[in-house]
Design a protein around this nucleic acid. Structure first.
Lengths: 190, 190
DNA sequence: ATTCCTTCTTAACTTAAGTCAATGTGGTGA
DNA sequence: TCACCACATTGACTTAAGTTAAGAAGGAAT
């Protein structure tokens, strides 16, 4: 199991044996059942996650509606906004499936960064990569129609359509469930 | 002038005197005239910028149209995607005004990070803050109408409406210039 | 000053998403 | 098993953005 983290990190640099061992030893796992809420809007966040199995959704409420921000799946990192800080979370985190994660906390993170500066360097690189990816998807979102966004999702993350409800997918695409339903119908007849 | 960088960085941690001196000494400035293209789509990027004065816009072409990704203004950092890597840039960078920047390059960045690990740590923190901000604006974008997005821009970055053309603003808002024109008209009569 | 070009605005029309409401469907729990 | 509830689909209607086209306004260059 732990290999997945090392595999993930080694996409970015070569990991020293020393660091590999440390990651191994500090690894701390948890399992959650489908539907578990990991973090509530307004609460303080003291955990971050690396997903080994399952799916986590972030969302917030507006006018009573759930607005999906992001879906996180295998080999993705979930670092909540304000992780480790006494500032309320702007969103919920919820498991859409039974989910197995590697859990981190601010204290261990700090210790690890101090002991292995290479790890913090790696974190910087990864944060920048994720930032650029997110900027690219934001740009893609802005320049495409709801239908194009749906088709793009179908192409890039088809698994999500099995894992999440259509309401959740619709809000992720920035549209109403009725519209998604119509888009799907429209595409069926093509 | 250099103070602005230190001021910016000190928003996140206290800067050691040592580091302060190093930043001071490594500071390298450039001025560009309005309209200067700093980076072309497809080119390699070897510079990053901290804006002291002026405005930089990132955009890409699609069907001959310019799609604005972001506007960067005073005290913002512009680190191009693939900065320092032999991978083509996905977008243009252009000065909307006469612009004064502090310029960085991959070599100096690397040296500074090696010499001052605190600086790389700071960069990680800043990257994460920017990432969260961007995620929040993406979420806001998805859940609001073009009119709401315009009103939000008016509230959060009113200066941009003076600095950029309406076409540029419109593409930034993910709409057509005609629509922006109508939205403005609509709001006039309220 | 004139020309040329781009931007901005306006209008008429098309298209698709939002809204509201009704119905069908599937899963959960008592 | 049944009742209930959230989800998904469909239809009728409203609304606003996209499209196309034309004209007005402002700037830059000659």
């Amino acid at each position: 199991m732990e290999n997945r983290i090392l595999k993930y990190l080694s996409n970015y640099t070569t990991i020293t044996e020393d660091l590999e061992k440390a990651i191994y030893e500090s690894a701390f796992f948890k399992s959650y059942k489908k539907g578990t809420v990991l973090l509530k809007e307004g609460d303080f966040s003291n955990e971050c996650y690396f997903i080994l199995e399952g799916c986590i959704r972030s969302y917030f409420l507006r006018d009573g509606e759930e607005n999906t921000i992001e879906f996180y799946t295998e080999e993705q990192v979930v670092t909540p906004t304000n992780f480790g800080k006494p500032i309320p979370s702007p969103y919920y985190l919820e498991c859409l499936e039974d989910t197995v994660v590697n859990v981190g906390n601010p204290t261990v993170e700090k210790e690890m960064f101090q002991k292995y500066p290479q790890l913090e360097s790696l974190s910087r690189v990864i944060a920048e990569v994720i930032l650029n990816k997110q900027q690219a998807s934001f740009a893609g979102f802005k320049t495409s129609s709801p239908e194009e966004r749906y088709l793009n999702l179908l192409k890039t993350r088809p698994d999500l359509l099995q894992r999440a409800s259509q309401r959740q997918i619709a809000s992720y695409l920035g549209i109403k469930p009725e519209s998604l339903s119509r888009i799907r119908k429209r595409l069926m007849n093509k």
